[in-house]
């Protein structure tokens, strides 16, 4: 079954890039443009996987991950962080918040696809 992925990024070009590169790899993509919007969309689309940016207005990625993990229904949803950030401190924060994995931007479409399958076959 086609996996449904929710991507959250405040950059429209990044959202589109994710959508094109992942749709062509057989995923279905929904997107949201900040953490708050992302949380709303989680409830609406109930994705198989959440991919989120960190630096976003309104609600950042850390806050989004924490909020998502608080919802019992989403406890088992893998969450990948896709960010240009790369510091350990940030990664640790994301992990403590409940992120499943971390991918540093820029990404290669095929590697991203492989990474996604690693957490969400």
């Amino acid at each position: 079954m086609t996996k449904l992925i929710l991507t959250v990024d405040d950059s429209a070009s990044m959202r589109m890039l994710l959508k094109t590169s992942l749709t062509s790899q057989g995923f279905r993509i929904e997107s949201a443009n900040d953490g708050q919007h992302g949380l709303e969309r989680m409830h609406e689309v109930k994705p198989d996987l959440l991919i989120t940016d960190i630096n976003m207005p309104k609600m950042d990625g850390f806050e989004l991950i924490e909020a998502v993990r608080k919802v019992p229904e989403f406890k088992g949803v893998p969450i990948l962080v896709l960010s240009t950030e790369f510091s350990d401190e940030k990664k640790t924060r994301a992990r403590n918040a409940g992120a499943t994995g971390w991918i540093t931007k820029p990404f290669e479409a095929t590697k991203l696809g492989a990474a996604i399958r690693r957490v969400c076959p």
Binding site: P78, V81, T84, F86, S87, D88, K91, A94, R95, A99, T100, G101, W102, I103, T104, K105, P106, F107, E108, K111, L112, A115, V119
Partner: peptide, 14 residues
């Protein structure tokens, strides 16, 4: 779960 760097960021601080 865990954390990796996929992309070749100019200076990924691993």
């Amino acid at each position: 779960d865990d954390f990796m760097d996929l992309g070749a960021d100019p200076a990924p601080a691993p």
